[in-house]
Design a protein around this nucleic acid. Structure first.
Lengths: 227, 227
DNA sequence: CCTCACACGTGACGC
DNA sequence: TGCGTCACGTGTGAG
């Protein structure tokens, strides 16, 4: 893990040291050997500005990695991907907490005294290292078939818990996917869901991976995801 | 603003079109003019892979921009910066809401002080963490018919917003109602939902009122609920 | 050997 | 005009 963390830090430092380190090796490369050409003096201007631009972008990426926990791969694209997933996780957590807050407030208004939950007032919520809540879904089957370039038919079977339907909806809404039609059936503690989903054309190829990742995120990250 | 959004989308398409568009201009650049060199055939391998890598990274960045609201500049580095700031905002928001929730829960154990005035409710925030509006559900039709002493058929028509489905699910799950079967169709910004709901026998007579009240709670308490 | 991820210099385009 | 941003092809090093 440590060696992984040094994986592109070492590369990153190459660019840092290019400020005054390795760059000196090639410093004579842009020496104005021909002073008649004004470009030979202006050329390093573009180079060094471009170099700083790249450095700034990398530093931004480095900072982004810092605020995102559980970064699996130090890969440049994976950092962005993890950041996206993490933002969506935060979105859904906030929404879940807001829902719980609304529930509590509605109870204050005296709407429903039907608190049948045996555990008491607070839901049994699992808290991971970052303090975020985790509700496992337990997907038992997940099938996907493309019925068009922008439409896909998703059918899944999962265990029915209290918030299963809400969480499933959150999964798809967090992916910015459009649920055209959905059919949900509940039978003997099982939940069967068949839905037509539409998305952007370029996302379709990675759609299954996204859904699996989203469901995985909504489950316990420590637990291995079994489908 | 729109022209800004097209700012590097147009540039982005340059890379897309380089697949088969402008690239044809330079397609002869890697033609094996000298067939004795095998590198002239293997060279595009590296090129196209690098091209795909760049495209993937850009798509990831594009997706990151999508989940982050209020992106001022479409600048590549600014997108990452806004994402970082947004994550920190979400962090603070979640912490604040958690505190509020804990306060409510602790208070709930003691005296049930019911807030009579809907206007002076403690939380009247209609904006979420991004500052974007949280839109109410806007129920346009709500019909209920009893098909049994414990089962009721609910069909409703409402406007389709981002979180409509999630909120609807939350409404029913908060009422501790059992959704036996649900059929959701989305058509032209309208959401049609037909579901069979089961509950305890003694709740059935007040079920409609409960659902209406729950939906009202999930909307803005300040706004009068129009059905 | 090959693949992957990266930094680099460079030309192009818009302000 | 320069300045900033970008995509591109290339070389390099790690796995």
């Amino acid at each position: 893990m440590e060696n992984i963390s040094m994986y592109w830090d070492s590369i990153h430092q190459v660019e840092d040291y290019s400020w005054g380190g390795l760059e000196d090796t090639f410093s004579s490369y842009y020496d104005s050997s021909s002073p008649d050409r004004p470009q030979s003096a202006t050329a390093p201007k573009n180079i060094v500005s471009e170099r700083n631009r790249r450095k700034k972008l990398n530093d931004r990426l480095y900072a982004l990695r810092a605020v995102v926990p559980n970064i699996s791969k130090m890969d440049k694209a994976s950092i962005i991907k993890d950041a996206i997933d993490y933002i969506q996780v935060l979105h859904d957590e906030e929404r879940a907490i807001q829902a719980e807050l609304n529930e509590l407030e509605s109870r204050k208004l005296g709407i429903n005294d039907l608190d049948l939950s045996p555990m008491g007032s607070s839901k049994k919520k699992r808290v991971d290292s970052s303090g975020s809540m985790v509700y496992p879904i337990e997907i038992q089957e997940l099938n996907m078939s493309y019925v068009g370039e922008k439409t896909v038919l998703v059918s899944l079977k999962c265990s029915k818990r209290r918030d299963t339907i809400v969480k499933l909806c959150e999964v798809f809404e967090s992916l910015k996917l459009n649920i055209v039609s959905s059919n949900i059936s509940s039978f003997s503690e099982r939940l069967f869901n068949t839905m037509f989903i539409q998305g952007e054309e370029e996302e379709m190829d990675t759609l299954k991976m996204k859904i699996e990742t989203a469901i995985k995120v909504f489950n316990d990250p420590q637990m291995p995801f079994t489908m």
